[in-house]
């Protein structure tokens, strides 16, 4: 049995005096692809932000890459360098004067040789041709690839995404998922992603966390995406909708 990359025990997170995540426990194995699913307002973004040190937690423990995170949430430098987090959407405005290669270079750690690392990351994500384009000129699919290049320009162990396929057309969403799987296999990355795309979870993820403030269930997709579990997570109306949608 390999040691877990991330271990969460009885985690409780409050925001503005209200408990948003309650008693959550799970572990991520190295090289796994884990999906966090649940209705809006279930605490998914809060949970992953606490895991990467963006939010404090009030109860329980988070052990990431062998380090126990302080309640205040700040990641130690040696842990932060091995974890990449991408928020749901970037707040980029119109003509933001930043080229793709400049942006990807910002993902380098101080010890990394950016002259080699940036072109290699752009090549790996098949976006070398975009290196001189402005970040704000990219399409949704192109931007997601460039963000992945930013995340992986420095070798990381854990990638955490908050709904990476939001706003992408179905083709771009599939391509992005294929790239993620490729990165996972080639670089041994562990992936944790929030998503609403249950068909993608069925195809690609090997572990699913069903969250609605507390964990309703967790396990491989074939068990957690059953009709009964989804009904428990989303309510009866959602399952009726999915049923009528497929027929």
């Amino acid at each position: 049995m390999t040691a877990s990359l991330l271990e969460v025990n009885d985690l409780c997170i409050s925001r503005a005096g209200h408990e948003v995540v309650s008693g959550v426990s799970f572990a991520l194995q190295p090289g796994s692809d884990t999906a966090v699913i649940g209705p809006n307002g279930a605490g998914k973004s809060t949970l992953v932000q606490a895991l990467v040190g963006l939010l404090p937690h009030q109860g329980g423990t988070i052990r990431l890459l062998g380090h126990t995170l302080p309640r205040s949430g700040r990641l130690p430098r040696e842990v932060r360098d091995q974890v990449a987090y991408l928020p749901q959407k970037l707040l980029l405005d119109g003509r933001f004067p930043l080229s793709v290669s400049e942006f990807v270079r910002l993902g380098c750690s101080p010890c990394c040789n950016h002259r080699k690392a940036v072109p290699a990351a752009l090549e790996r994500l098949q976006v070398s041709h975009l290196r001189r384009r402005l970040l704000s000129e990219l399409s949704g699919g192109e931007l997601q690839r460039v963000l992945l290049a930013f995340c992986t320009v420095h070798p990381r162990k854990l990638l955490v995404f908050d709904e990476p396929r939001t706003g992408l057309d179905p083709q771009a969403a599939v391509q992005l998922q294929e790239l993620l799987q490729q990165l996972r296999l080639q670089e041994g990355l562990t992936i944790l992603q929030i998503t609403h795309d249950l068909s993608m979870v069925r195809r690609s993820s090997d572990w699913v966390l069903c969250l609605n403030r507390a964990l309703c269930c967790q396990g491989p997709p074939e068990h957690t995406l059953s009709r009964e579990e989804l009904e428990r997570l989303y309510g009866r109306d959602y399952v009726l909708y999915e049923h009528s949608h497929h027929h």
């Binding site: 990467v52 928020p87 910002l106």
Partner: peptide, 18 residues
């Protein structure tokens, strides 16, 4: 410089990079 760019791109992304 790096901090200024990252904060301008996205403050949450900037915080996640320390």
């Amino acid at each position: 410089r790096r901090a200024q760019i990252l904060i301008s791109v996205d403050p949450v992304l900037a915080r996640s990079r320390g």
